[in-house]
Amino acid sequence: MSKRERESAIKMSLDDIISLDVGGTRFDTTRQTLVKDPNSMLARMFDPASKMKPGLLRNGAYFLDRDPEWFRTILNYLRNGVLLAETQKELLALLTESRYFGLTDLEQEVTARLEEESSPQTSSPPAGSSDIIKLNVGGKIFQTTKSTICKYPSSRIAQLVQGIFKQTLDSEGNIFIDEDPRDFEYILRALRNANGYPTTVPKETIDNVINLRDNLEIREIKFGYREKSDSYVSEYFLSVCR
């Protein structure tokens, strides 16, 4: 089979209709929808080019041992890119499900919603009292809030922002941190996450991220990675506590 023929076969197979049995509820969708997030477990299960097996086929549907109530929301998100969830209960459940399925875009959106929910609603702040700050980490500018960075007041990064430690400023007056910005992205994501939830980090990066966490003395935050396997039922989230 030529390269063009293989590409055509893959394209055609992406239009296949896939039936799923999620916790006893049947869902019909297309393969294209299931592989929307290429790094997710669903993509690895149903991508025609993937070596991972989809799992148990029961009565013409692939069985997933998850709650169908939350999977319906996940499937709609993959279909149209819109997160249809409002309550904290829904968001917390979807945070768990998005981490299980490795849907990083959904996880980030849910985390942002939860952060908005937990932030105190106040009237417009007086001039000059904005909580928004910019950090220059290894040449990349990150914009966040002081309350996020100072979530753990005893951490080194919180004391740096508060001026307890000597600050180094760039030419724009932003606090400069001489670290790898790719690793800092995960530190900031963990600070934004709800307490008690490990933040997903690629396995090949996790040692660097944990070293940076320790350098910044934010040992309260936890990281984990997804252990890949040939069967979706044995893929799981590992909490890293060091």
Rank of each mutant, 00 (worst) to 15 (best):
143 Q>D: 04
232 Y>P: 11
162 Q>Y: 08
199 T>N: 04
119 S>T: 15
159 Q>Y: 02
149 I>D: 09
202 P>K: 00
57 L>S: 03
162 Q>C: 10
139 G>K: 04
130 S>R: 11
39 N>G: 15
157 I>M: 05
239 S>C: 05
222 K>H: 13
118 S>N: 13
178 D>V: 00
156 R>S: 11
199 T>E: 03
162 Q>G: 08
50 S>P: 03
180 D>R: 09
221 I>Q: 03
69 E>F: 10
217 E>V: 10
127 A>K: 14
70 W>L: 09
138 G>K: 02
122 T>R: 15
122 T>H: 11
177 I>H: 07
79 R>G: 13
51 K>N: 14
106 L>F: 03
187 I>R: 05
202 P>L: 04
117 E>M: 15
31 R>N: 05
223 F>T: 09
169 L>E: 05
88 Q>F: 00
103 L>K: 08
81 G>T: 01
16 D>E: 13
125 P>I: 08
216 L>T: 01
161 V>G: 02
105 D>A: 14
29 T>H: 01
57 L>G: 10
43 A>Y: 02
4 R>K: 12
115 E>I: 07
71 F>S: 01
148 T>K: 10
161 V>A: 07
31 R>S: 10
220 E>I: 00
90 E>V: 02
143 Q>F: 01
41 M>R: 10
152 Y>S: 07
49 A>R: 13
129 S>Q: 15
168 T>E: 15
42 L>M: 14
77 Y>I: 02
221 I>K: 08
222 K>S: 15
95 L>P: 02
237 F>R: 05
203 K>L: 13
220 E>P: 00
10 I>G: 04
64 L>C: 01
234 S>E: 12
175 I>A: 09
33 T>R: 07
188 L>P: 02
209 V>K: 04
44 R>T: 07
72 R>L: 10
36 K>A: 08
161 V>Y: 07
22 V>W: 00
105 D>Q: 14
163 G>R: 06
148 T>I: 15
197 Y>H: 07
84 L>E: 15
20 L>G: 06
121 Q>F: 10
193 N>L: 13
174 N>V: 02
14 L>Q: 11
207 D>R: 12
215 N>Y: 10
212 L>T: 01
3 K>S: 13
50 S>F: 09
116 E>V: 11
79 R>I: 05
205 T>Y: 12
64 L>N: 10
